[in-house]
Design a protein around this nucleic acid. Structure first.
Ligand code: NAD
Ligand code: NAD
Lengths: 231, 231
DNA sequence: ACGCGCTTGTGAAAGCGCGCACAAAGTGGG
DNA sequence: CCCACTTTGTGCGCGCTTTCACAAGCGCGT
């Protein structure tokens, strides 16, 4: 739709690379904690569980931050990746649906450490509203628009039952939230320009089951399909 | 590798297709609940949030189950996909680490409905062991091997802190579990033949942040990069 | 019986991502 | 100063994935 040829700027980092940057970042921070100052692509790739050429190509998209013959300076790379991912600013997150999963998310300490701050918890159940979860008062879903505006919420997390998810998503969008993380097992319908990511545990299990079944079938008929037989 | 002629259906289903089959399955079951008997690729694709040509190609990997001019019979397709994914048998799942997340998973009702049965809960904390979560007694991690054997566990879920995850994974593998779903933010090291899938909420948020920042940058300097400005 | 409209199944092309392999660039020792 | 060694950055080919486009197939109405 928008013109592609007349856009010489190469701001486009491949999606696959973006998905791996957080993994590199975590590995780098682990190295930093151990007092390590520089790291080679080979070592970092091993820590991140990827091929070293892929790692180098990924990093090359952010610029040339390595030194040939030496490697990458850990601290500088942490900063560059953080900046590229937008983690140098802090992001206000609102969680809707404070049930089993919503509570676990609210109580999870690992978010705040990376620039994400839980700014609000919302639920529709009068029995839940008013409760204090992880030192945050749960507010009623009707105040979503007000909360988004007043707290500057830019990321919405949906942890409601599937039936309510689309409604919540629409309200998020209307309130101006353009980034949504959805845990409900439904396909959300949102306008262009709104970014939705889905986490679906059930799908992950089904994919595991598929491969497990295939291994089992193969063992029966084909015998040497996989290098199993551990112990 | 294996002979082509004596194998009517090609056993190799592309990975990308496998990842989408559960989505189709869920959409089909929603249609089934509404009493709909047949569906076109176009309608099902919309419900699943994909391109219709992609859906048809995906389904063609399982065989020719559609009728030209009509579409697909919902019930038959549900059966075929379920069978292909291995959901016609039931899978015993063990969850290790009964903290915030482990409890949410244990209390989640959506697993049982698709062939997955929570067979055991395990933890290392003496204060947690013995507790009853979702009507299941939490057992000590030391009994992992025994539990895996006696309950026929084939899928292991890791919801422990990152520091313990590799150890738990190794014990799962040694006990014969070849499918692992990992929620801890670490790269697990396992032998060939063991299938590990990772769910990392923190990474999802970081990817959202990246795109959100890019949109914000574009709006400031470039103005018409995305079709935002809702309402 | 036949033709019309609808929908599937699939070639073909384009796009994207991965990993090999190597030249370029830097380091350190002599 | 030079040479041997290390490690980055990337050109290139390959295979997987997506999408287009259309012939073949099916049902229905006449
Ligand atoms: N618990 C898990 O481990 C798990 C695993 C996979 C998927 N999920 C999905 O995550 C979602 C939440 O699961 P859960 O186990 O926490 O469910 P839950 O029933 O425990 O909690 C849902 C919460 O959402 C609230 N809610 C319902 N409608 C709402 C609305 N319109 N606005 C605001 N709040 C509303 C309810 O009051 C409740 O507190 C579900 O869609 C589920 O399928 C959960
Ligand atoms: N809670 C969340 O929403 C969330 C979000 C993203 C990631 N995670 C990840 O999921 C994991 C669990 O998170 P949580 O919030 O439930 O943590 P938690 O601390 O609440 O629970 C961890 C549980 O694991 C048990 N445990 C520790 N070591 C063990 C071992 N060796 N064997 C068996 N059990 C052991 C602990 O006793 C505890 O009960 C962590 O790795 C976390 O990073 C959690």
């Amino acid at each position: 739709m928008t013109s592609r040829p007349p856009r010489p700027r190469d701001r486009g980092i491949p999606e696959a690379t973006v998905a791996r940057l957080p993994v590199y970042l975590r590995a780098l921070q682990a190295l930093q904690d151990r007092g390590i100052l520089t790291v080679s692509s080979e070592a970092l790739a091993t820590a991140a569980g990827v091929n070293s050429a892929k790692l180098r190509k990924d990093l090359s998209h952010l610029g040339s931050y390595g030194t040939r013959g030496v490697g990458y300076e850990v601290e500088y790379l942490v900063y560059q990746i953080s900046r590229e991912l937008g983690l140098t600013q802090d992001w206000a997150v609102a969680i809707v649906g404070i049930g089993n999963l919503g509570r676990a998310l609210a109580n999870y300490g690992g978010f705040g450490s990376r620039g994400f701050r839980i700014a609000a918890l919302l639920d529709a159940d009068p029995g839940v509203v008013g409760q204090s979860v992880a030192s945050i008062q749960v507010r009623h879903i009707d105040s979503l628009e007000e909360v988004v505006r007043s707290r500057g919420v830019s990321i919405g997390v949906i942890a409601t039952p599937a039936a309510s998810a689309q409604g919540v998503a629409s309200r998020f969008v209307e309130a101006g939230v353009t980034s949504i993380l959805n845990f409900a097992p439904v396909v959300l319908n949102v306008p262009d320009g709104v970014d939705v990511r889905k986490v679906d545990l059930s799908i992950e299990l089904q994919i595991l089951a598929f491969h497990a079944q295939r291994r089992a079938d193969g063992d029966g008929r084909d015998a040497r399909a996989a290098g199993l037989e551990l112990t």
